[in-house]
Design a protein around this nucleic acid. Sequence first.
DNA 1: ATTATTCTTCATATATTCTTCACATAAGAT
DNA 2: ATCTTATGTGAAGAATATATGAAGAATAAT
Lengths: 226, 226
Amino acid sequence: MKVLIIDDEDLIRNIIKEYCMNEGYLTYEARDGIEALDLFKAHSDIDIVILDVMMPNMDGLTAYTQMKKIRNTPTIILSARGEEYDKLMGFNLGVDDYLTKPFSPRELIARIKAILKRDNKVLDSYVYKDLKVDIRAHAVYIGDKEIELTPKEYELLLYFIENKSIALSREQLLSKIWGYDFFGDDRTIDTHIKTLRSHLGPYRNMIKTIRGVGYKFEEKEKDLTN
Amino acid sequence: MKVLIIDDEDLIRNIIKEYCMNEGYLTYEARDGIEALDLFKAHSDIDIVILDVMMPNMDGLTAYTQMKKIRNTPTIILSARGEEYDKLMGFNLGVDDYLTKPFSPRELIARIKAILKRDNKVLDSYVYKDLKVDIRAHAVYIGDKEIELTPKEYELLLYFIENKSIALSREQLLSKIWGYDFFGDDRTIDTHIKTLRSHLGPYRNMIKTIRGVGYKFEEKEKDLTN
DNA sequence: ATTATTCTTCATATATTCTTCACATAAGAT
DNA sequence: ATCTTATGTGAAGAATATATGAAGAATAAT
């Protein structure tokens, strides 16, 4: 488990770090939003983010917004004041959890565990119109007909679903699905996208090409009538 | 219901015993792993084992290992040490439940009940078309003809039935059927799948291969017409 | 101890999937 | 409109995973 801790106060960071290490989690640390974003971009294997809203350079909410654009990683937000809570709600951001300082580290660890646990069995299934992905069965259906996907296609589709409406670069897809130790060609993605699309049949347009960037999965098929 | 209580502390043993008797369970008691094993061997009607990890002569985990070799009886492990490490190990070993001392006897009873309940709701027969598995008789039929399965094949089939429509990894099958202490090759599963399939004859396609993952048991034979 | 059965491993065969490449097509830029 | 660049696509060989057969090891039965 890898935790990204973002807080400008050394004391807080260290306490959190200690507790995380105690649980056997690996930690990355950042002092502000800029650092945090760099780390977040560089390490796609981060499992959870712990983020202080009050920070110099780039405030927590901005950093949070940016990170969500890159990847959908569970995040716990820390705040010194209760007022910030309203702000968060105002943003209507899908924050995973929220803690006000001062908090007990035990409480934090408990919440981390809860989120990671919840995350491990995130969705049992995904349904959009008559496209269904049953994760326990490791199967994909259109209507009641099962469509056979290869391992890579299945993983791709799952990753798209977990990150719907987020533009994903080829780099990102490679590192997340193929692993950091893949040194092949970017364009191999294209071929898998091709076959995945063809398997998705009428839903092929849910995978949208973003020229110069990569691909994005959206819950609306492009209009086929033109 | 017969409970084997293994703990070197008389006090703890007696408390557990009291509560068990209150529930109408019969109890066997052992002070250490050696005694426990003797009792366990002698009484094949033991329904559940409650085991302290810290004991003289033979420690709990060793005793646990030995018992698992003899029979697969649900086990609740007790530990005085709160370290997460032990807990994790416990769970990885396929223990049914885990409690850290001090625990409330009520909690223990609740867990015993949960396990026994889970254990009892196991179906006593499974039927699909003319494939019949009579669990009480430990026999499998296709039509009227009994098909002879080896122990591993039978356990595999049963586990598949209990987890139908769920993708099962080789790891999972190994740890559940072979036990956590099997250090052999993953691929030995394949061979058992092969022989089980061949024994299942016309139903061989109910065991579906999920490439890159493992196997899945489904209540529909793969369509052979295409 | 001997025999029979079952389990595990290994080598090989087969099937599927992955990757790359070349070329076609489409989108933006000039 | 043309050029440039990025993506789409089909095909083929490489890489990988699973299926299978056989043999020795382990276990249980006699």
